[in-house]
Nucleic acid binder design. Structure first.
Lengths: 148, 148
DNA sequence: CGAGTGCGTCCAATTTTCGGACTAATGAGG
DNA sequence: CCTCATTAGTCCGAAAATTGGACGCACTCG
């Protein structure tokens, strides 16, 4: 039998290497909320400027944000979401939903996604076939069969 | 006008205070995969034993995991998901899906969720009313109206 | 007895984070 | 002209967290 699998190489771990840190995801949240500028972000997030600057650099180099000049003379930059960044929405939404449910939320969701039909959008776990939302009860984790 | 809102109090930030760190979420992933024991976790996750021990303690005190004795004499403990922990599944799933899509995944998803009907479960953004999955195009972020 | 398993703790060295001060370029107000 | 405010960072020293490896203890198995 093979030796015990060393650190699992998995998509969750790889993703967390990039965004698995408080400030990173909060920076992405801020951009979603429309605050694309460094100063505003530090204020709304509460992160040390130093740390946020480092985080933004790594998010840019990971292709999640794009640093774009919006003013010439006192060259100023802002951050925008790339396609990859936009698709982090479900991650942020699921985190928010969990927090809304389990952590006293005296202020409610900081943001709401609206469907074209005008209703709220939620991040849910749904069945590929039925399309129906699944409760924890109806779900069953399946570990990929061990290779022979 | 009020002074610029200090660090936003939001569910995303509160949630990340607890699980917003690589090892924490990876520990939860391992328990989902059925590895409830300390030693096995350190091996599969690749975290320093010290750090993992600290993370497990904080996950327990946050009510996400439960530390339970499974052997008397050489008192041994294992970790199990509470209800709150179980409901982190969507978070892990969305992270996994993002990683599958954007980070070269030479090994595929490390786990699959199965619906009671036998099909795969996916994390999707769906409309609260229609229940239909929404593409990025049909979604529009709405910032809560600024209070007067 | 000696080795192995399981769940941690302890430690010293390194790395990160923190928060406040500081810079540089520009515009606004008096 | 002089000063203050804005914006996007950088620099710094102190404090905290992380790391990896060694160690401890309570067993069991052969």
């Amino acid at each position: 039998m093979a030796v015990a699998a060393d650190p699992r190489a998995c998509s969750v771990a790889r993703t967390l290497d990039i965004v698995g840190e408080k400030w990173a995801l909060l920076a992405v949240r801020e951009v979603f909320l429309g605050n694309r500028r460094f100063d505003e972000m530090t204020r709304r997030i509460g992160a040390p400027r130093d740390t946020l600057a480092a985080r933004l650099r790594s998010l840019v180099s990971a292709g999640i944000l794009e640093r774009r000049q919006y003013c010439d003379h006192p060259a100023r930059y802002e951050y925008r979401l790339t396609q990859a960044g936009l698709e982090l929405y479900p991650v942020i939404l699921t985190l928010m939903r969990w927090g809304d449910k389990y952590l006293a939320s005296d202020d409610g969701p900081p943001m709401v996604l609206e469907h074209s039909c005008g209703h709220r959008l939620l991040a849910a776990v749904v069945c590929e076939a039925c399309g129906k939302p699944a409760d924890a009860g109806t779900a069953r984790p399946v570990t990929p069969a061990a290779r022979p």
